[in-house]
């Protein structure tokens, strides 16, 4: 292990990557950092404000509410999509033309642009011409996403589940296909129940794809913008206004560059922190516990 030769020329090899990352991530991020500590009044009029914007943003009650809404939304859709995705993957056909057919059918929602998804559901839920809205009204169920906050919430969750569960299902499906047949055969010989096969073979083998699925779904749902914006516009009231929409209103609608930059950074750090904590926890769980008393 100690046969490494120190050679500073090796840094030259890292350089191209560093330049690439600088342009794609570091420099744009730094401009945001730059804005976040200034009050920009005009092209040549800006003042250094220190951490003031950060304090303001953290204490903003509307933003705190949006943050709670955002967290709840992510947790709800994860709690639905992950088990549902696993379930779908488990019952999908394993081979033959049926497998291909189901794969194509299930992938369709993933191919639809986000604001189109919003529009589809907007029309779908209308009481006069939308199949779901009309159907519910005919059944005598009161349903109105522009008037009732819980109707709006249910619809947004339903929409996200429809749009993104296929991704989870496909990831799990690929994970399941990679389990060698011998595991199932051994489990049968060991007289494992269906549940035990799931719990001790399928689920452990799915860990890696599930980590990816949870991270992707968390990050994306935490940044959701176009679909609720088109469907409900954040209403009724601000009941479905999520963080990204608050940010867009602030940055583009009101041109508050300083506060929105500070807000963006906090937003970014929250996503980073949650993803990191989640990932390290899972990876830690897979390690051996330190053996007791030497050995």
């Amino acid at each position: 292990m100690n046969n490494k030769v120190p050679n500073n020329k090796a840094w030259l090899l890292v350089l191209p990557m560093l330049v690439l990352v600088a342009f794609s991530a570091i420099i744009p991020l730094m401009t945001v950092v730059n804005y976040s500590v200034q009050d920009v009044l005009g092209p040549n009029a800006s003042f250094f404000t220190g951490t003031e914007w950060f304090k303001t943003m953290l204490n903003d009650e509307a933003l705190q509410a949006a943050f709670l809404r955002q967290i709840s939304f992510s947790l709800i859709i994860l709690a639905i999509q992950i088990p549902l995705g696993i379930g779908i993957a488990l019952i999908m056909p394993k081979r033959g033309w049926q497998a291909s057919a189901v794969l194509i059918l299930i992938t369709l929602p993933l191919l639809i642009p986000w604001n189109v998804v919003g529009s589809i559901w907007q029309i779908f839920t209308r009481g006069d011409i939308g199949l779901m809205g009309w159907g519910l009204r005919e059944l005598g169920i009161s349903y109105n996403i522009t008037g009732d906050a819980s109707d709006a919430w249910v619809t947004i969750v339903l929409m996200d589940v429809w749009h993104w569960t296929p991704l989870v299902a496909m990831l799990c499906y690929s994970g399941l296909r990679s389990i060698p047949e011998a595991y199932y055969q051994a489990a049968r010989i060991d007289r494992a129940s269906k549940w035990a096969v799931f719990r001790y073979i399928q689920l452990p083998k799915l860990t890696n794809v599930l980590v990816i699925a949870v991270l992707l779904r968390f990050m994306h749902s935490f940044m959701i913008y176009a679909e609720p914006f088109v469907l409900t516009g954040g209403g009724p009231g601000s009941s479905t206004t999520f963080l990204s929409q608050s940010l867009a209103t602030m940055a583009i609608g009101q041109q508050d560059l300083g506060p929105s930059a500070a807000f963006s950074l906090i937003y970014f750090l929250v996503i980073l922190l949650v993803s990191w904590v989640f990932y390290t926890t899972i990876m830690h769980m897979q390690k051996d516990k330190p053996p007791h008393g030497g050995a």
């Binding site: 060698p180 011998a182 055969q185 051994a186 007289r191 494992a192 001790y200 452990p204």
Partner: peptide, 25 residues
């Protein structure tokens, strides 16, 4: 009982639990 070409073990379990698995089933 059958032993396969490539070892089949239950990853998340300890060796003890692996051996106990058929009995517990």
């Amino acid at each position: 009982a059958q032993v396969f070409q490539f070892p089949v073990i239950y990853d998340t379990m300890t060796v003890f639990d692996n051996l106990a698995f058929p009995l517990r089933n």
